[in-house]
Each structure stands twice: as C-alpha cells, then as structure tokens.
C-alpha cells in the first residue's frame, strides 16, 4: 500500500510548525484523548486590543494527519483576529495540505476543533460571549459530539452511547448507554463534564450510566 498521505502532509509531519507549549497562555484547549489514539492541545496568545492571535502553539499525540493538520491550522490562524480564525474549517486545512485520506478525517478534524475550542475558551474567560443563548438539549448534544468514545474511536453521539440528555433549571443530566464498570466510563464522564460545565447558565452536570 502506498502511503495514504500527500507530499505536503508528509512534509508538515516531518517538520511541523508551531509545536510546543506557551507559558501563561491567554487560552488553551484540548481535544481527543490518549485512549482514542489522538489528542491535541492548543495554546493561544491574543492581543487584548486587536483580538489578534499573536502566538499559537500545539502539541500532538497522534498520527501524521493529526500533526500535519495541527501544523497547518496554527499557521493559518497566526496573525488573524479571533473572528477570522473561527472561520477556518477542516476543508481549508485539507485543501492546504493537498487532501487528507478519508479514513483520517477523524484525526484531522480534532486539530480544527481544538482551535475553535481554544477561541471559545478565550471568549469565555474574557467575558466576550456576546449573546447568551439559553442552553438546550441540542446545544448539549453539539458539545457532546466532541467527546470521543474510545471503544470505537468515534464521538459518543454518533456511536449512540448517549441515551438521553435532560436540561432543567441550570443543571444537565446525561444518561449513558454503557455500564459504569466499562473501562472507559470514568474517562467519558470526565470529558462530558469538562465540555459542559463552562456553559454560562449551567451550575451542575450529572452523568449516569446503565442500570443506575
């Protein structure tokens, strides 16, 4: 089998740009988990006045497509305003890289998601969230699409292990269709809570498992 990667992907994989940590970042985010085989963290320095990204770095535990995508999106985002950077899509990254193999979409999407998540983190920390939309089941599900199901390596919504979501008076309860003694239940619970606790109108997040 020839390598499934374009030359550009391999070039970025060999010599990734903007890798590492930023001390005292203005914002940071993490996507994926080691259990899924891919994890990316991203750090931002943002100019408070212009809201331009002055520095950006990422770290990757992942395959070539993950590293290359992380590299390209940090290059694309550097120097852009947060609003501009928000618009960077997976398609942009893929085009810049000369295409990514379909089987690797999941690994590379992570790198795009982590940029969005870091920008959100910045906005939440700096009180920039303009419209406070009331949290609904749909909003919760959208966030849960970023939580991976390590059993299969796809998100927990797509793999149908979220049985139900209830949003009521500032608290969310998520019921999972896997037993608590599953080896990943703790991992998933932490990820779910991490994703939901920063919603502005939410005070409590509860995760339940099968037969509880």
């Amino acid at each position: 089998m020839p390598l499934p990667y374009s030359e550009k992907v391999l070039e970025y994989f060999k010599h990734p740009k903007n890798v590492g940590k930023i001390e005292n970042p203005d914002a940071k985010a993490k996507e994926g988990s080691p259990a899924c085989g891919d994890m990316v963290t991203l750090y931002l320095k943002v100019d408070e006045k212009t809201k331009r990204i002055t520095d950006i770095k990422f770290e990757s535990f992942g395959c070539a497509s993950n590293i290359a995508t992380g590299s390209i999106i940090t290059e694309l985002a550097k120097g852009k305003t947060l609003e501009e950077a928000k618009k960077i899509t997976w398609k942009d990254a893929s085009e810049e890289l000369g295409g990514l193999p379909p089987v690797k979409v999941h690994c590379s999407v992570l790198a795009v998601d982590v940029l969005k998540a870091a920008i959100e983190d910045y906005e939440e920390r700096h009180g920039l969230v303009k419209e406070h939309v009331k949290t609904t089941k749909e909003i919760v599900l959208k966030r849960l699409k970023h939580v991976m199901n390590p059993i299969v390596g796809l998100d927990i919504v797509k793999t149908n292990i979220v049985n139900d979501v209830n949003v009521k008076e500032g608290s969310i309860s998520v019921s999972m269709g896997i037993p608590r003694d599953n080896q990943f239940s703790k991992n998933i619970e932490e990820e779910v809570k991490e994703r939901l606790k920063r919603l502005w109108d939410i005070k409590k997040v509860e995760v339940t498992f099968d037969e509880e």
Binding site: P16, V19, G20, K30, P34, M39, V40, T41, E59, S60, F61, I67
Partner: peptide
C-alpha cells in the same frame, strides 16, 4: 522528537 511535541 515525538515526545517533545506530545501533550502527554
């Protein structure tokens, strides 16, 4: 090299 860029 890979450990240097790993978040873990």
């Amino acid at each position: 090299k890979l450990r240097e860029i790993s978040p873990i």
